[in-house]
């Protein structure tokens, strides 16, 4: 295993690892969304990106509105618990600010594409999609007869994103990454992608990781660089660190109904701050305290020591 310290800043990670035209994967489901990386991609005005994300919510909505995305591979697109994603709808219904190519799956089928890639297989079968209209508009969805029975199955091809962005609760300086709570598609996405960039709410010593290996989702040797980015998932959440900022989702939903409203939002929360530290300062202590949950510790397990 490489033993060099991989810690960089978010700015450096995006500058070095995202090339215009890349296919980017963002890890998580509602939990641990890598918002700090998304904001930095927008600030650095990356172009022509393809995003592979089953539930891209506000992350992709901001990227579409800011003109960063050319294509979206997805399963569900809305503002969760709130309503529509306005930039997405403007792009698909009216080509504002530009046309957006879409490739659509169910959540299950798209995660199955990552699963296939993560296992080194060219495709995987699934029972998803059969009988729906999704296959009519997506040539990557095919069907096959089971070679062992008379069942008909849907098959989807492996997908290997150029770069995966993953936010985790804790990692060591070498990228060994641990999460708890909703794991989402983080394991499949990391193992499927050509490069893996991790941000962590906290950088911890390798001893912390080694004392609880069942919690590790990505081994450090798969990880290219690591960033320490507290509150890296706001306005989504990091279990045990902070709650989802529901007011922020509601505010985004109402302010981005118009192009002007979205531009204002972008200027305030993304272009208007230089980095995540400034963003957190702008959120303010009162808000941060409000989002901090009360502690609810697990009981430690005994792995035993076997010299």
């Amino acid at each position: 295993m490489r033993r060099d310290n991989k810690i960089v800043t978010t700015e450096e990670a995006i500058k070095k690892f995202v090339l215009n035209g890349d296919t980017v994967f963002l890890g998580g489901f509602a939990h641990l969304y890598p918002y700090a990386f998304v904001h930095e991609m927008i600030r650095q005005k990356k172009e022509n990106l393809t995003l592979c994300k089953h539930s891209p919510e506000l992350m992709a909505d901001m990227m579409i509105g800011a003109g960063v995305l050319r294509k979206l591979i997805f399963g569900w697109f809305g503002n969760p618990g709130v309503g529509s994603s306005h930039c997405f709808r403007r792009a698909v219904e009216k080509e504002i600010p530009q046309a957006l190519e879409i490739e659509e799956y169910t959540h299950f089928a798209l995660t199955t594409r990552l699963k296939a890639a993560s296992m080194g297989l060219p495709f995987l079968p699934t029972r998803s999609i059969i009988g729906s209209d999704l296959a009519k508009y997506n040539p990557n969805i095919k069907f096959m007869d089971c070679p062992f029975s008379d069942e008909k199955l849907c098959v989807v091809p492996a997908i290997h994103p150029d770069v995966a962005f993953i936010n985790v609760q804790r990692a060591d300086a070498f990228g060994n990454s641990q999460i708890w709570g909703a794991i989402g598609d983080i394991r499949e996405g990391a193992f499927a992608s050509k490069k893996v960039i991790v941000s962590a709410e906290e950088i911890v010593s390798t001893e912390v990781i080694r004392r609880d290996p069942n919690r590790t989702v990505i081994p450090g040797f798969l990880v290219d660089v690591v960033v320490e980015e507290p509150w890296g998932s706001h306005p989504s959440y990091a279990m045990g660190y902070y709650d989802r900022d529901n007011d922020f989702y509601i505010d985004y939903g109402s302010r981005t109904r118009t192009v002007e409203g979205f531009e204002e939002y972008l200027n305030e929360w993304i272009y208007g701050v230089d980095n995540r530290r400034e963003y957190i300062r702008k959120l303010g202590a009162e808000k941060l305290l409000k989002l901090k949950p009360k502690s609810f510790m697990s009981f430690a397990v005994d792995y035993g020591y076997y010299p």
């Binding site: 489901f29 509602a30 939990h31 089953h54 969760p80 618990g81 959540h107 299950f108 995660t111 199955t112 990552l114 699963k115 699934t126 998803s128 708890w180 709570g181 909703a182 794991i183 989402g184 598609d185 394991r187 499949e188 989504s236 959440y237 279990m239 709650d243 989802r244 529901n246 949950p293 609810f296």
Partner: peptide
């Protein structure tokens, strides 16, 4: 829960698993 990913669903639950596993 305000959204299907609300953290309150995980604290005190019986089992937490990968997204793919829920479907598969």
């Amino acid at each position: 829960a305000l959204s299907i990913g609300d953290p309150t669903l995980f604290s005190g639950a019986l089992m937490a698993l990968d997204f793919h596993d829920v479907f598969a």
